[in-house]
Design a protein around this nucleic acid. Structure first.
Length: 438
RNA sequence: GGAAAGUUGGCGGAGUGGUCGAUCGCGGCGGUCUUGAAAACCGUUGACCUGAAAGGGUCCGGGGGUUCGAAUCCCUCACUUUCCGCCA
């Protein structure tokens, strides 16, 4: 959530940013936050004064008892009753204001950075880079034309999966349900190869590998912001009150919850492969066909914790890393800078990576790489001690997929199909151990 | 699932209801000594809220209670550890 400091320091910027994000009634909400803060401060000051008086009295009473002055002590005691009551009152008022403020702040999204484009829908996202077309200034999803192959003879991946016996969707339905495919033979081996490839690349780029639990407690869900807003999107094991993670971001970022890091430890660079679980309630149609949207899928995530000064640089490095993966896989891709209205609740700046599916004739999102500024860190209480003055300050958190498997597999199968079979890109062959699926 | 013990500052570990935010050790930081380092010695060392500052307030797992006063007593919840059982 936003910090009071951010709001106090530049209210106008915050309000303008929220409007860019299409958050309704931004100005009113911010005013209300400030009003509640004023109430809280007033109550606290009253409470503190009363408490100070109480502390003083208590000490005095103790002293009087020690000196054997029973009568004077009793007299002092009599004074405490009223004081106690007013302390309780101020405390209640303070807590109520604080709770109301937090509750409100949790409903307010992060403020986007200046370079985030205006816009409300996916059509307004800027196309900033692609390997299949020029991206002059002002290119948007709505007006950009990439030089993509549309071969009508190419089969969609769900048909290829059946043809080469790589993935059995019906078996998945039998043992689990829709959205839980079973990978078989070279299909399964391809999964494992991609996981190893992505992890090896991340390790090469200096990310420390973490293998976290895939089930987390509610506190972790709140830490990264899946709770309370997206409660329905996570699988919840009610008996134990545990959640299946929708992304490795949750356990990995929460490693740094309630932690004070030393500045010289930063940036922290972690990567993790996990299975990800998403209920995807409300999805339907061609979006969920085949591998396009699953309830369980494999993903390698990169996570960084950094200083405010360096987080932008970190973000750029992450983007370069993800782009490098797509280049090595020889896939047609484009990079989008998301517009205010299409960004996630918690992001300050977000780039999506999409690969082109030549049989489905559409772009598939395979990575979303975001800088959350201090928004997540504030909830997580993830801080660092500055070298300069030894003060604590909130970290910046960043994360991105590098990469999510299913849509990569879809594009690889579809784009690389030939009469002879499906060709595995050279960079991946050391990991698969085979060059062809045939 | 059964039984017991525990939860204190970055870590280890004290703590009698009344200057306890908390002894001490380690670690960290600064210094003396040294060509440099180590060792030794001296000093210093929590977070948060509030305030221009001085200062004030909160925090000893969470919540509640007793008391003029709670890390210390009571209740409750959560978690951890150990032993037994079960199991990979």
């Amino acid at each position: 959530m936003l910090t009071l400091k951010q709001i106090n320091e530049d209210k106008a910027r915050v309000v303008a940013g929220l409007q860019k994000k299409h958050f309704p009634n931004a100005a009113e909400a911010i005013e209300q936050v400030l009003e509640l803060d004023a109430q809280r401060k007033a109550a606290q000051q009253q409470k503190d004064a009363a408490q100070a008086e109480m502390n003083r009295l208590s000490k005095e009473i103790g002293l009087l008892f020690k000196q054997g002055k029973q009568a004077e002590a009793a007299a002092a005691k009599a004074k405490t009753g009223e004081l106690k009551e007013s302390i309780a009152q101020y405390e209640t008022r303070m807590r109520e204001a604080e709770e109301a403020q937090t509750k409100l702040l949790l409903t307010i999204p992060n403020v986007p950075y200046d370079i985030v484009p205006e816009g409300g829908t996916a059509e307004d996202n800027l196309v900033v880079k692609s390997n299949v077309g020029e991206c002059p200034e002002g290119s948007t999803v709505g007006n950009w034309q990439g030089n993509v192959q549309n071969d009508q003879a190419k089969l969609p991946h769900w048909e290829l999966a059946r043809k080469y016996n790589l993935i059995d969707f019906d078996l998945g339905v039998k043992i689990s349900g829709a959205g839980f495919p079973v990978y078989i033979g070279k299909g399964a081996q391809l999964q494992r190869a991609l996981i190893n490839f992505f992890l090896a690349e991340a390790n090469k780029a200096g990310y420390t590998e973490v293998m976290p639990p895939t089930v987390v407690n509610a506190a972790s869900g709140y830490g990264t912001g899946q709770l309370p807003d997206k409660e329905g999107q996570m699988y919840h094991c009610e008996v134990d009150d545990l959640y299946l993670i929708p992304t490795a971001e949750v356990p990995v970022t929460n490693l740094y919850r309630d932690v004070i890091l030393e500045e010289k430890q930063l940036p922290i660079k972690n990567c993790a492969y996990t299975e990800c679980f998403r209920r995807e309630a409300g999805s339907y149609g061609k979006d969920v066909r085949g591998l396009n949207r699953l309830h369980e899928f494999s993903k390698i995530e990169i996570v960084r914790i950094d200083t405010p000064e360096h987080s932008d640089e970190s973000h750029k490095e992450m983007l370069a890393h993800v782009e490098g993966l797509l280049q090595k896989l020889e896939l047609p891709y484009r990079i989008l800078r998301l517009c205010g209205g299409d960004m996630s609740f918690t992001a300050a700046l977000c780039y999506d990576f999409e690969v082109y599916s030549e049989a489905q004739h559409r772009w598939l999102e395979v990575s979303s790489t975001s800088n959350f500024d201090t928004y997540q860190a504030n909830r997580l209480k993830c801080r660092y001690r500055r070298e300069e003055d030894k003060k604590t300050a909130l970290c910046h958190t960043l994360n991105g997929s590098a990469l999510a498997l299913p849509r990569i597999v879809a594009a690889l199968l579809e784009n690389n199909q030939t009469e002879r079979g499906i060709h595995i890109p050279a960079a991946l062959q050391p990991y698969t151990g085979f060059e062809w699926i045939d």
